[in-house]
């Protein structure tokens, strides 16, 4: 880790100004990801702008949606009355992530911005297009057990490791972003990117911008049948091999609407739009679930060590739909 400056501004404006002033600066929130990356030499910001003094720790009911401040702790979101009642999928996904200690530090904004856990990204002596564009992808022909099966490119097959983001994608959340120019909003599903030829870009946040909040529609019809299933190598405190977030709006035995997203499979939380469309208006039957899973896997591709995901992913989709 290099020596760095540290400031802790009191206002959002001051924080954003500081970020714009200094090209080598970076926000720090819970620090649970950034500090690790700095210790490993993966990133080396010369100035840290600690944003924990900003008044962005809140969970509020607004008309038709719930607004969650970017600095709200993962643990606070997971346990909040409102979230547990109206957005159980989000609560479940958060609790499936990391460990209680980490969730007590990690923030919503930090969680969205966390980097991939690809080992080639972490080891600065190995090639990685995400860390150092042009050096190649170490994982492509390497140890890629945790890696993507959907939406990858030959430049990068890393996955986004978040659980929370899978639920937020399924729930049609919106990201509120602030900058000197004011606020803008983008759909959560458009926040993270696919690697394409620019895997160094994880998402569409521009330099100089800050995530200030997430807004999640509180559609009641999805709160009753919601389930997050995470398959991992141990019972807790491990990243997903495959995770599935599902929420169903069912009347009688007919699916009115389905929300489905998958984690551990792509460079971004992977919304299963094809499966959602297919399930709409269908009966909730194993046959239809199988079909939905098959649709979801249409373009999936394995890279060797992760071939098992081609089977585990559809199995988990079906399992989640069955159970929910």
């Amino acid at each position: 880790m290099i020596n760095f400056d540290y400031i802790k501004p009191a206002t959002q404006k001051a924080a954003i100004d500081a970020l714009n002033k200094d090209a080598t600066s970076q926000f720090i929130a819970g620090g649970t990801n950034l500090v690790d990356l700095m210790k490993r030499g993966v990133v080396s910001p010369q100035k840290l702008i600690d944003i924990n003094n900003l008044p962005l720790k809140s969970i509020e009911q607004q008309k038709g949606f719930i607004r969650i401040g970017a600095l709200t702790l993962n643990s606070d979101v997971a346990e909040h009355e409102l979230i547990r009642k109206k957005l159980p999928l989000l609560s479940q996904a958060l609790k499936a992530g990391a460990s209680p200690q980490l969730r007590n530090m990690a923030t919503v904004g930090g969680n969205m911005m966390q980097r991939t856990r690809c080992p080639y990204f972490y080891d600065t002596t190995m090639p990685c297009n995400k860390r150092q564009p042009g050096t190649g992808c170490g994982a492509l022909k390497g140890y890629n057990r945790m890696h993507a099966i959907l939406g990858a490119s030959d430049k990068c097959i890393a996955v986004h490791p978040s659980d929370m983001c899978v639920a937020l994608t399924a729930l049609d959340a919106t990201v509120v972003i602030s900058s000197r120019k004011g606020d803008r909003r983008i759909p959560f599903a458009d926040f993270h990117r696919l690697p394409g030829t620019t895997p160094e870009k994880d998402n569409n946040l521009q330099r100089g911008e800050m995530i200030t909040a997430i807004e999640v529609p509180d559609n009641n019809e999805f709160s009753k049948k919601a389930l997050y299933i995470k398959i991992r190598d141990r019972a807790s405190y491990a990243f997903a091999l495959i995770s599935v977030a599902a929420a169903l709006d069912i009347k009688g035995n007919t699916i009115q609407n389905a929300r489905l997203a998958m984690g551990g499979v792509a460079h971004k939380p992977w919304r299963l739009t094809g499966a959602e469309n297919f399930l709409k208006g269908k009966t909730a039957s194993l046959e239809n679930f199988n079909q939905a899973a098959a649709i979801s896997m249409k373009d999936a591709k394995g890279y060797g060590y992760n071939n098992f995901k081609l089977k585990l992913a559809p199995n988990t989709i079906v399992q989640t739909l069955k159970t929910v």
Binding site: P119, T125, M126, G142, Y143
Partner: peptide, 9 residues
């Protein structure tokens, strides 16, 4: 990873 002879986990 045998290509580099380095640990990946």
């Amino acid at each position: 990873d045998n290509r580099y002879g380095r640990w990946v986990n």
